[in-house]
Simulated assay, not measured.
Amino acid sequence: MDREAELTALHDIATAIQSADTAEEAAEQTVAAAAEILDFHICSIEIHEDGWLVPYAVSDGAPEGGARRMRADQGLAGKTFQTGESHIVEDVAADDSSDPADSAYRSGLSVPIGDHGVFQAVGTEPNFFDDGDRERAELLVSHTAGALDRIEREATLEEKNERLEAFTSIVSHDLRSPLSVATSRVELANTECNSEHLDKALDALDQMDGLIDDLLTLSRQGEVIDDPNPVSLRTVASEAWGVVETHDSILDIQTSDTINADRDRLRQLLVNLFRNSVQHGGQDVTVTVGLLNGQAGFFVADDGVGIPADDTEVLFESDYSTDADGTGLGLRIVEEIAEAHGWTVDVTESASEGARFEFMIDRS
């Protein structure tokens, strides 16, 4: 097969590999492609599992037992996995690092598959492989590594979503139901026996209800946003301002431009920032929303008391709050929403020495 035909075939098989649903499927497609396109008649893929390199796929031409489970530091495969570098062995008999699975193997090629495992090809005669073989194998398994990266991310995300579903079920039902009963009972008791102790109990129950709301919001806002749409920053900011208890505060929107975002989550981000400004900056604070100069993004700033320099490092941590009645989750939710959009958030001092939150949008 000539070079152009080989590259075309590699491109076609790369599409199939990258659409694989499981690691086993990606490994099997890679081995089949290597045997057909690269003329490696005997090859295998070993994937790392708990300190071992485990065969996931072996070519049809391999002898029985031609691939085996090995320690992650054993033989040529282990050397390749540990160093992250490809290796060619011209003569197995003269190479101390080789530990062939079959006595018929006389030469070898070993290529790392990212940090997932190793692609191995063997020849039944010495000097079977050259640098061109290595380059073609590296090109092939680069697609395998990409597929395995994606499969691993998807598995992690699925596991995370399952945990979130279990968490939200507990929070929204198992906690909220008894909380509602407790609130009703205390309210009833308060009508029969008016007491400041019961008033404080109701305040505490109300704070717990707010915490549940914030926990549910936090659990739902971090999901990656794949299909943002053009959204009017002016319109969404006005909507967000309308649901915050703003007292005598003023909203100054300095842009009519649109940004690509999930409308509902952008509104939640702005609600949390506006509420933070009013709660910490005073009931007559002025909040400004506008676009960043010289780069893609927007800012939300106020002329309140600002944020202590020592607090900027912990500002987005879940337990950060300067309000004794605060849940500490408001700004953590802001960061989760920003990250879900792929935005970078930074906190600085505003021109009026208040707080300024800047959201940088990567348009690459």
Rank of each mutant, 00 (worst) to 15 (best):
C193E: 15
R220Y: 10
A182I: 02
E187Q: 10
E25H: 06
T258E: 13
N272A: 13
D302G: 01
H173N: 10
G330Q: 01
E165I: 11
L315Y: 13
G290H: 00
T322R: 07
E335D: 11
E152N: 13
I37V: 14
N293D: 14
T327C: 12
G304F: 01
A77L: 08
A16L: 13
D325K: 02
S107L: 08
L140D: 01
S364D: 15
A237P: 00
V300M: 02
S256E: 13
A189M: 08
A355M: 05
G326Y: 00
F119S: 04
F81V: 07
N260P: 07
S59D: 09
L273F: 04
A182S: 04
R153H: 10
V89G: 00
E192Q: 08
P230C: 10
W241C: 02
E313H: 15
G84A: 03
F357Q: 00
E162H: 13
S256W: 09
I259M: 03
S232T: 05
V224K: 13
V345G: 11
D213P: 01
V314E: 15
S177V: 15
V171M: 12
H116N: 05
L140Y: 06
A16T: 15
P230H: 11
C193V: 11
E158A: 10
A121L: 05
T288H: 05
A62M: 11
S169H: 13
E24G: 15
D214F: 09
A338I: 08
L198H: 03
T124Q: 13
N229W: 10
E187D: 14
D213Y: 07
V345R: 06
L233I: 09
D2S: 09
L76F: 00
E152V: 13
N194I: 11
D39T: 07
Q254C: 08
V244D: 01
E239G: 06
S97L: 08
S142C: 11
L270D: 02
E158V: 05
D133W: 03
A5S: 14
D12G: 07
L315K: 06
W52N: 07
A137V: 05
A201D: 12
Y320I: 09
T80D: 06
E349C: 08
D323W: 03
S195H: 02
A338Y: 01
V54P: 02
